[in-house]
């Protein structure tokens, strides 16, 4: 009885969330803002797989986001102007980058892991910064086109929004499958107690590496969609402040929930948009907000929703 009431509540919440996401671009001041929120929601969700489920504090996820963006952009600008192959190339290259970074970083755990991932991300940043011929260097990669896919005219902002939404919903569905699978449960076990998980016979490093690659895959997808959205890849997409932002989004939303980071991205990007309308010093205000969150709001948005709805999603 309680079970069915719960699942009914769950279905209502989920379907209203989907409905809301369909109407969302008409509720924001401009469509591109809604699309940007979606892109970062996907990025934060993929980051949550690593931080919230496997308990690995990576500070280098800008690398996979940025590499996805640059690869997709470079494919479209310099190789072949077709969206799907470009996105595919983006996720492949970012997954390979995650394999490289992950393979070396999981040798260290805790805070060392954080520093090593951050340092590798910085390596990619400098490479993009200096390899001007390929990436455009400091100016970013200019003039990324949005060629149509059959009847889909992606130059229309609203069409692009639904195009991005499709990928985001698909990714969330896959993400949910991953975290509720035996694989996901093992990740949570090793987050809680690494030694015990190892003693049961799990190859902990292998699990950590695999989830890192999955996360790199979705981060790369988010990056590729970002390149399409902006018609341009900014060099800052690879910079470590981008990594910091995604950490903040995940924590503000509530880590280890997948939906929380989506709300975190929504909150942070809306806030930034609003603040930057009336002051140039939004970095200062965002800094204060981050500090305030740590001091008094650690459970994240998701914990409030849970308390209010008594819902377990």
């Amino acid at each position: 009885m309680i079970d069915s009431a719960m699942s009914k509540k769950k279905i209502i919440t989920l379907s209203s969330a989907v409905l809301l996401s369909l109407l969302f671009p008409y509720l924001t001041p401009y469509t591109a803002l809604a699309s940007e929120i979606l892109v970062f929601a996907l990025f934060a969700m993929s980051y949550d797989l690593v931080l919230g489920y496997a308990g690995m504090l990576s500070f280098g996820h800008a690398a996979f986001f940025g590499i996805g963006a640059y690869t997709t952009g470079i494919m479209l600008v310099r190789v072949y102007p077709s969206v799907m192959p470009a996105l595919l190339a983006g996720v492949i290259v970012s997954s390979l980058a995650a394999l490289f970074v992950g393979y070396l970083s999981i040798r260290r755990s805790g805070i060392y892991f954080t520093m090593v991932t951050l340092a590798f991300a910085q390596m990619f940043y400098f490479t993009a910064f200096k390899w001007t011929g390929l990436t455009g260097g400091d100016d970013g990669l200019q003039g990324v086109p949005r060629p149509s896919i059959g009847p889909l005219d992606l130059t229309s902002e609203i069409t692009l929004y639904y195009f991005i939404l499709f990928f985001v919903l698909l990714s969330i569905t896959i993400g949910l499958r991953v975290v509720n699978s035996p694989f996901g449960k093992t990740l949570q076990a090793l987050r809680e107690n690494k030694d015990r998980t190892m003693s049961i016979g799990y190859d902990v490093d292998k699990f950590r590496l695999i989830v890192f690659i999955i996360s790199g895959f979705f981060s790369g997808l988010a990056g590729g969609l970002y390149a399409l959205l902006l018609n341009f890849v900014p060099l800052s997409s690879l910079y470590w402040t981008t990594s910091g932002e995604v950490v903040v989004m995940t924590i503000v939303g509530g880590m280890g929930t997948l939906f929380g980071p989506v709300l975190g991205a929504l909150g942070i990007i809306l806030l930034r948009d609003i603040i930057s309308n009336f002051t140039e010093s939004w970095n200062f205000i965002m800094g204060l907000i981050f500090m305030g969150c740590v001091l008094g709001f650690r459970g994240g948005i998701m914990s409030i929703i849970r308390d209010k709805l008594k819902l377990n999603v």
Binding site: M286, G287, M291
Partner: peptide, 12 residues
């Protein structure tokens, strides 16, 4: 959380 705090401090 402490690291996040220092990140916010840096931005400010």
């Amino acid at each position: 959380y402490v690291m996040l705090f220092t990140f916010g401090l840096m931005m400010a």
